[in-house]
Amino acid sequence: MSLPKRIVLVGPMGAGKSTIGRMLAREVGYRFLDTDRIIEDRCGANIPWIFDVEGEEGFRLRETAMLAELSDAAGIVLATGGGAVMKPENHELLKHEATVVYLKTSLEQQVERTRRDRNRPLLQNDDPEAVLRHLFALRDPIYTQLADVIMYTDRKSPRLVVRQLVNRVDPKTPRHRRQVRKEGRNHA
Score class of each variant (00 low, 15 high):
M1S: 15
S2C: 09
L3N: 12
R6I: 01
L9D: 01
V10E: 02
G14A: 10
A15P: 05
A15C: 14
S18V: 08
S18R: 07
T19R: 09
A25Q: 05
R26M: 06
E27R: 15
E27Q: 12
V28D: 03
R31M: 07
F32W: 08
L33Y: 06
D34W: 06
R37K: 13
I39T: 02
D41T: 11
R42E: 15
G44F: 06
A45Q: 15
I47S: 09
I47L: 15
P48L: 08
I50L: 15
G55T: 08
E56Q: 14
F59H: 02
R62A: 02
E63G: 06
A68H: 09
L70C: 05
S71W: 01
D72F: 08
A73Y: 04
I76W: 02
L78R: 02
G81E: 13
G81V: 11
G82R: 05
G83V: 08
E89V: 14
E89T: 05
H96F: 04
T99G: 03
T99F: 00
T99I: 12
V100K: 08
S106M: 04
S106Q: 01
E108Q: 14
Q109A: 15
V111Y: 08
V111P: 00
E112C: 11
R113N: 12
R115N: 12
R116N: 15
R116L: 13
R118C: 04
R118L: 11
N119E: 13
L122Y: 02
L123K: 11
L123T: 07
L123M: 12
L123H: 10
Q124R: 15
N125D: 14
D126Y: 03
P128D: 13
A130D: 07
V131H: 07
L132A: 07
L135V: 01
L135T: 00
F136D: 10
A137N: 04
Y143H: 08
A147K: 06
I150P: 04
M151T: 07
R155W: 02
S157W: 01
R159T: 06
L160Y: 08
R163C: 03
R163H: 14
L165V: 07
L165H: 05
P171S: 12
P171A: 13
P171V: 03
T173F: 01
P174G: 06
H176P: 00
R177I: 12
R177Y: 04
E183G: 02
